[in-house]
Simulated assay, not measured.
Amino acid sequence: MIKQFLMNLLLSFIWVALTGSMYYTNFLFGFLLGFFILWVMNRNEVDQRYFYRVPKTISFLFFFLYQMIIANLQVAYDVITPKYFFKPGIVKYKMDAKSDFEINLLSTFISLTPGTLILDISEDKKILYIHVMYLHDKQKFMTELKNNVERKLLEILR
């Protein structure tokens, strides 16, 4: 999988060198073109993980960007208006992530979203304690975190 990613990067750099324009959009187009070329060349290979993970990773990044924009707007609106809408609370979240890398990435993505902060991780590394600024429904928050963020992140990593 790493070999395919490095080959994809090499193909995108070759595309940028051939076109002579170093723009992000040109590099992204070269990356997508290289991804398509590698997919066509490796259709009959046994290991197809790379071709499933790249679209899932891009989808997750767009999802996270959307969530971050929504959270920033919510916090900004709360700061600008005279009435406060926040209802802080601490959630004890049982996670499915097992390895240190998975836990670290999950807690980083949770903490990057405005209005949430990781307070602690249990000794057995199964529970996250999360401070939430807008905790109107605890069960809804935990369900959205489990089904959206953690599930999508673990699909990419495993």
Rank of each mutant, 00 (worst) to 15 (best):
M142F: 07
Y134M: 03
L117M: 10
V132M: 13
N147I: 14
T57S: 11
P82L: 01
F64A: 10
T113G: 03
F85H: 15
V54R: 01
T143Q: 15
I69Q: 08
S59V: 11
D120C: 06
D120S: 09
H136Q: 13
L145I: 05
K140D: 14
E150H: 00
K140Y: 13
I80D: 01
Y77M: 15
K98F: 12
K94E: 15
V79I: 12
S107L: 08
I110H: 02
Y52G: 13
Y66V: 11
I90Y: 02
T116P: 02
E155W: 07
S122T: 02
M142D: 06
K152S: 10
F62R: 12
K126A: 07
F60T: 01
K138M: 09
Q139Y: 09
K56M: 11
V132L: 12
I156H: 00
I58H: 07
Q74Y: 11
P114H: 00
Y52C: 13
Y84M: 15
K94Y: 14
K83Q: 14
H131T: 05
A97E: 00
I110D: 01
F85S: 14
L61F: 13
K94C: 13
K87T: 13
L145S: 05
K94A: 14
D96T: 12
P114Q: 01
L73Q: 09
T143R: 15
N104M: 15
D78F: 04
F109H: 07
I103D: 05
E155T: 09
L61N: 11
K92M: 12
F101M: 12
T81M: 14
F60E: 00
M142Q: 10
L65F: 13
E144L: 11
Y84I: 15
I58P: 07
M133Q: 07
T57R: 06
N104T: 15
Q74P: 11
P88I: 00
K83I: 15
G115W: 01
F101S: 10
N72G: 00
I103Y: 05
I70H: 11
L135I: 06
V91Q: 06
I118G: 08
L117Y: 04
E102M: 02
F141A: 08
L61I: 13
F101T: 11
G115K: 01
P55G: 08
P55K: 05
D100A: 12
L157E: 03
T57H: 09
F141V: 07
L119H: 06
A97V: 00
F86G: 08
D124P: 00
V75G: 03
L106H: 02
L145D: 02
M133C: 04
F109C: 07
S59K: 14
Y84G: 15
K126H: 07
I80C: 01
H131K: 04
D120M: 07
L105V: 08
F60A: 00
